[in-house]
């Protein structure tokens, strides 16, 4: 009897000890259905000229100021292109977690643009693994150049152009994000007969994080042959994202004069592989318009 009692007390004691040493929280099993959306694939909602996988957060208003200067090759006479600039003043807003809208006005061809971007499939980790993000971007632009009497703008619709983009991308690692963008630009009116109204292109873009506050970015649009006039070429841009407290500052070189997709894809000047690089920058300043529910 006594031996049995001893046996049980020892048994009890060992159980007690092992329970003590065990990590109590590991018993509290992690919620196995938890799905985590991948965040911070880019510092801001543009790579350089293209939209990035990142949306303006829900309830946030993003004021964007973009500049593309004149050709660097003009040298000291124009102070490396800084005498001339195309500028875009833009406003982006995050309606919710998956829908972003925006408006902008570019000096190049006095163009107004509006767009929406929808996250169709979000990149996820956790219980559901979804390595590829899929988004849709559509924009409409209106050329507001005053009518010079050439009948070019006889119809208002002649001023309109459209872009549709499917964005497929992934934040491959903490530092590396890549995306491809099959794109269609439709212009109601083109300048010459040899140009197509519908232009198909394939865009590539990405970023590599160098430090927490500095990233290298690049993007390229390949326009499929025989769609554009000879004086236009593919758009190529390289830059850095610099994050300073409340701003994201993007400094880059690009061969595109215009800033919006319509201009970047179909009106980047250059002939026979000969083109000018230009300095440009985007500044993003965000304002919280609608606070998260925890703070209302």
């Amino acid at each position: 009897m006594r031996i049995l009692f001893l046996f049980f007390s020892v048994f009890q004691f060992t159980v007690h000890i092992s329970a003590q040493e065990m990590d109590m929280l590991s018993e509290l099993e992690e919620d196995s259905n938890k799905v985590e959306f991948v965040t911070a694939s880019y510092k801001t909602n543009r790579i350089i000229n293209s939209v990035s996988l990142e949306n303006t957060p829900s309830g946030v208003f993003d004021l964007k100021i973009s500049h593309h200067f004149g050709p660097l090759g003009d040298g000291f006479e124009t102070f490396f292109g800084l005498d001339n600039a195309a500028t875009r003043l833009g406003a982006d807003y995050g309606i919710n977690d998956w829908l972003q809208i925006g408006l902008g006005r570019t000096t190049f061809q006095k163009t107004w643009d509006s767009y929406f971007k929808v996250k169709l499939i979000r990149q996820k980790t956790g219980a559901v693994k979804q390595p590829l993000a899929v988004q849709w971007f559509s924009s409409m632009a209106i050329d507001a150049t005053p009518d010079d009497g050439s009948n070019q703008y006889e119809y208002f619709t002649s001023r309109m152009s459209f872009v549709h983009q499917l964005i497929l991308g992934s934040k491959i690692s903490e530092a590396l994000t890549f995306q491809i963008m099959p794109s269609l630009v439709h212009r109601n009116l083109v300048e010459t007969k040899e140009e197509r109204n519908d232009v198909f292109a394939l865009g590539f873009g990405g970023r590599a994080k160098l430090t927490n506050r500095l990233a290298f970015t690049a993007e390229y649009y390949y326009v499929f042959p025989d769609q554009l006039a000879d004086r236009y070429t593919n758009s190529i841009s390289f830059g850095v994202d610099i994050e300073t407290g409340g701003h994201v500052f993007q400094l880059f070189v690009t061969n595109s004069v215009g800033i919006i997709e319509q201009h970047v894809i179909t009106q980047t000047p250059g002939q026979n592989g000969d083109f000018d690089m230009r300095i440009g920058f985007n500044i993003s300043r965000v304002f919280t318009v609608r606070k998260p529910k925890e703070f209302r």
Partner: peptide, 18 residues
């Protein structure tokens, strides 16, 4: 740590990223 919600989304990003 990712479950911390900030009043400003940018603060939240900086908190997690930087």
């Amino acid at each position: 740590l990712k479950s911390f919600v900030f009043e400003k989304a940018l603060m939240q990003e900086h908190f997690n990223e930087n």
